[in-house]
Design a protein around this nucleic acid. Structure first.
Length: 289
DNA sequence: ACTAGAACCTGGCCGC
DNA sequence: TGCGGCCAGGTTCTAG
């Protein structure tokens, strides 16, 4: 499932294989794939034909390709199963091919958006002054962004009446973190997913963010995480970071620190994996007087 | 204003 | 063999 490292791998692939090329046609094969482009498929295609693609950008799990010298951008989110593939025109269509871009230099291949579960999508938006598509203005900077603000993040955690894993998944507080890397970072930081954010010390926040940063950097170095054939990078190559996950998916396997069997808890319609010894559940909060 | 939880979607897998 | 039901989960919408 694509989180920040996987999306960054795709961004680099787009930068290498797509940036600088000029679109001849954008073909929408499934309307749901561009549902966030409210003006519809014809408008989407019409406004991209003849446009030159700029440098591929990313914030958190969002990717975008500037067009019109940065005045607009094609925004992409991979959802759970989205792939951006550069394929030879002769390659047979993928089963879940949703959008196809062809280019003036046809021998450089086509760009294909393939998405089985259709949570992902593409859309075209005006860009704000810093080049960010306007619809993702609420997405916080991610931990790999040099301008990520540790003080503001800690202050927000102290202010919120919520729990730490919820906060890690809240893209308006810190972006790029999904269920997998949230569990990995919490395991590294020895924090339980249900820990109230208001009780975190500044040191704990700093360490947690460092762990998020480190686990993402390691995953990026390994080419992204993949759990099945759903996630493939821009050139069709799967990542292999899953071999080094310490928490996610390790129910009943020994904790790599203390040997205690790892647990899985149902949590928010999904799963949380943790070590019951290293990551102690918080004491119930005392009722307010 | 803030927080919690449901809804969206498909295909692989499991048990019967 | 077939079928029902569960599971994966990021984002957005709605309810409280």
């Amino acid at each position: 499932m694509p989180e920040l490292p996987e999306v960054e791998v795709v961004r680099r692939g787009l930068e290498r294989w797509v940036s600088g090329r000029t679109v001849t046609a954008a073909e929408v094969l499934h309307p749901r794939a561009i549902r966030r482009h409210v003006a519809g498929p014809l408008d989407f295609a019409g406004r991209l034909a003849g446009r030159r693609i700029g440098a591929a950008m990313r914030r958190g799990k969002y990717l975008w390709l500037p067009v019109d010298d940065g005045a607009h951008a094609v925004l992409a989110h991979l959802g759970m199963s989205g792939q951006l593939l550069v394929q030879p025109a002769a390659a047979p269509d993928e089963r879940h091919l949703r959008v196809r871009f062809t280019f003036e230099d046809a021998d450089g291949g086509e760009l294909r958006f393939v998405d089985q579960r259709t949570f992902g999508g593409l859309s075209l938006h005006p860009a704000s002054e810093d080049g960010l598509p306007d619809v993702i203005a609420h997405i916080a900077r991610d931990p790999l962004d040099p301008e990520f603000d540790q003080d503001a993040f800690h202050a927000a955690l102290r202010r919120r009446r919520t729990t730490i894993k919820r906060a890690l998944l809240d893209q308006s507080l810190i972006s790029g973190v999904g269920n997998i890397y949230a569990d990995e970072a919490l395991w590294r930081a020895r924090l339980h997913y249900d820990r109230p954010t208001a009780t975190l010390t500044r040191t704990q926040t700093t360490e947690l963010v460092a762990h998020v940063h480190d686990v993402m950097t390691a995953a990026l170095a390994a080419g992204g995480t993949s759990f099945d054939s759903l996630y493939v990078n821009v050139n069709g190559q799967s990542g292999y970071f899953e071999r080094s996950l310490d928490a996610y998916g390790r129910q009943d396997e020994p904790c790599r620190r203390c040997g205690t069997p790892m647990r899985r808890s149902a949590w928010m319609n999904r799963s949380s994996y943790f070590c019951p010894r290293c990551q102690r559940a918080p004491r119930p909060r005392p009722a307010r007087a």
